[in-house]
Design a protein around this nucleic acid. Sequence first.
RNA 1: CCGCCCUUAGCUCAGACUGGUAGAGCAGUCGACUGUAGAUCGACUUGCCCCCCGUUCAAAUCGGGGAGGGCGGACCA
Length: 349
Amino acid sequence: MSMNTADRFDLVTRHTTEVVTDEELGALLETETPSVYIGYAPTGEMHIGHFTTMRKLADFLRAGLNVTVLIADLHAHLDDEKSPFDLLDARSAYYEEAVEAMIAAAGGDPGQVKFVRGTEFELDPEYTLDIYRMAAETTLARSQRAASEVVRESDSPNLGGLLYPLMQTLDVRALEADIAYGGIDQRGIYMLSRELLPEYGSSAPVCLFAPLLSGLSGGKMSASDAGSKVNLTDDPDLVAEKIEQAYCPAGELEENGVLEYLEHLVFPVLAGREEEFVVERPEQYGGDLVYEPGGYEQLEADFLSGELHPADLKPAASAYISAVIDPVREQLTEQPELLAAAYPEKYGE
RNA sequence: CCGCCCUUAGCUCAGACUGGUAGAGCAGUCGACUGUAGAUCGACUUGCCCCCCGUUCAAAUCGGGGAGGGCGGACCA
């Protein structure tokens, strides 16, 4: 690649919330063609929160990394049976399609991404044996702590949730990933991985973490609260409705999902296309506002100062969000059988 | 293998002893107030009370059986 190391480093690390560690990543980017992987457990429907990591995959590709997406089907079941065992195939198929569509919509080439399902290698004898070896030397408390932000909490936790971090650790090795990328909620697990893998003759992965976006109703995005997130299959009217109802206090950035969507999703995509962000505004409030590609900082400043009012921002935000996810929605709705098979209760026969 | 406990609204649970076809909090919906949303007021909605059989004029409630879940014992002592 003609890109120099500093540029590569910036590209790889932008829009991340933590890098473990800068030094290791720097060294990695100087030498070879590093590999990065991210795992998605095919549980609930994919949503806009996933999109921010997809956009990073486009960055990774541009930086010349080998990118692997793991569809962690076994994990989806191990975590409190979030996905029933006999729906794993259907949900994996849906995830694969959705991920490809999102990568494309985010300006990347899905053809350059390697897709792997967990069951393709997690049942290999060597892998299985190492699960047992790690299980023998890992305490319940350690595993539980590692998984606490990821695995569903319960008064009566299942064994599956405790195996989960160990398997994720072995995934890093099996996929020969130099870099593990995931939401910051994955931190606990990968810190365990960094501890364990060297004991098993592998090097610890460099870890890159994505910020978790706030939900639209304030607080975290919640799977159980439909209004807290935009789904990939939401049509523009529904997106508009959700954004209209979103928590968005004037002049405040904290837990402001609308602004976070713009920062981590809309503006990066617009920047890739060199398109402006236009807020249409009635004359009585000052007329239209135009932001340059990459002009999120300015928008945020205007929002903080009160120059940009939420009531004006929201319609613009929902229009651009819809535009970004539109191709994904179309691709998915063209194949209704995918969703019907993956979520029969909701889209079923 | 044995014993005990649990199963009621979307969620967490009361109500069961003393039968009279259900309640609270949260969530949700709708108004008011804000140039958005939230917050705050005001109003409203929500149910195969796990299933089957039985007793009874009447069963969420009592009796029997079943299913699902949880805890403990049993070996080590």
